[in-house]
Write a protein that binds this DNA or RNA. Structure first.
Lengths: 242, 242
DNA sequence: CGCTGCATTGATGAGTGTCAAAATTGGTGG
DNA sequence: CCACCAATTTTGACACTCATCAATGCAGCG
């Protein structure tokens, strides 16, 4: 027997909407197991018709999409609480791959149950849709970054977004959090070359705004970064857990 | 009394999943009216908390997002059958604006009814989520275009996507369809400058691949374009109508 | 100890952006 | 029907951000 949902460590974090005991009970039935994967492990493959859906319990990863010429676009970064596989669950095919960047613990659901989900628990299906809308919203912001922001602006924006997400999950102490991603990941996320990304990051470091080395991201002034990124610092909404 | 749903012209197109008479009846109650707007009219505003949701019945438009420095990212193009306002309906705030590019006829729903929707008609709420997942998928593709494709590739990609959508809606005759967008719209969609977009389009015209002038897009070889764009030509899935 | 992957740095050049102006189109009113 | 205006498209010249190439350093690891 895997860990019970009522002991789920995420449900206690205030980044998330708390579930009622009844809801937890229902989710428990929906859950079919737990999966732990090592860094680098592919979790879902672009184009695949995966039978399983996941919620990230711990660890981080990336969503990425490959083009025919080998180019890679990182769609976004995966944090604990993220729901993985919505596209497979609904469309029958993933538009992107998901890959672990740290060791990750995943809560596993059965895709075939998704429909029961909608039928019997409208609140929960509403939550799924809420997450989808949130994702759509975020991708719109990303698109604006890649399309309209300069390299510095884009990287400042990415740092702000990542850092805020980290804060909400309690990953930040002393303005510092662990970042398991490579500079190539960030470069591919912002549509920049690795070299230029590297140079841009060092520029931000010189300006004492943010430093990222040895897998540690330290932000000196989130406000200053947000200013550069032309984005507003707003507290993140509480997310529902699936 | 506005036009009845059972006479909705979209429901007959084979781009869409057909609704049962019972479903149509339910949607009829959900519908609160119809709205016709002129080209250039803003339909929803970024940041607004709109009380109404729409389904485009006819005409085209764009979703766009503005940055603080005035830059604009076109998120995507709106075609008949598209559901507009999901973010407002679920998140309470739009992440982007929607603006008409031709005269548009819109089916108007009341946002406050959305929850009843989920509660009483799981199939329909499933459809809403399906559309959200589809949108997420598309935005991932767009992100890849803006981030990884060159100017020619990106514009070829955009043409393929628009043309395919046009085909599925019956807008194409003689390999030609009406395009009410400006080159600036396309430029802002692909993260390119207006000038470079213009020159790239003329290059495609010289190569006899596609010509776009006088609001008419003519595609000579969709296959060749798709090849350049590094994308596969797959028939579009039937979309549910909301 | 020699891999291999990642970060870092310098040099060079190409793809795109910016600027500016002319050509074209469409709409409006005299 | 013509004159005028605004919006859009088109073209040319030039500048610059950013990509590419290449080499070095550095850490982890079998």
């Amino acid at each position: 027997m895997t860990t019970q949902c009522k002991f789920c460590p995420l449900n206690r974090k205030d980044a998330f909407v708390n579930m009622s005991a009844e809801e937890v009970g229902f989710m428990q039935k929906f859950k079919v197991g737990e999966l732990t994967v090592d860094p680098g492990t592919p979790i879902l493959m672009q184009g695949s018709n995966a039978p399983q859906l996941f919620t990230a319990l711990s660890g981080m990863g990336i969503r990425e999409r490959h083009l025919q010429n080998g180019a890679r676009q990182v769609i976004n970064f995966v944090f604990p609480g993220d729901f993985i596989g919505l596209q497979a669950g609904l469309l029958g095919e993933m538009g992107h791959s998901v890959e672990a960047r740290t060791q990750m613990r995943l809560c596993v659901f059965n895709r075939s149950e998704l429909w029961n989900f909608f039928k019997s628990h409208p609140e929960r299906s509403f939550d799924v849709t809420w997450l989808a809308a949130m994702e759509e919203n975020f991708l719109g912001e990303s698109l604006s970054s890649v399309g309209q922001r300069t390299a510095v602006e884009a990287i400042a924006w990415a740092m702000v977004k990542i850092f805020q997400r980290g804060q909400s999950l309690g990953f930040v102490t002393n303005n510092t959090m662990d970042l398991p991603f490579t500079q190539r990941d960030v470069a591919d996320a912002m549509g920049l070359s690795l070299v230029h990304t590297n140079k841009t990051i060092s520029r931000l470091k010189q300006q004492q705004l943010a430093s990222w080395s040895d897998g540690q991201l330290q932000i000196n002034s989130l406000e200053a970064l947000a200013e550069i990124a032309m984005t507003e610092l707003r507290p993140l909404a509480r997310r529902p857990l699936i």
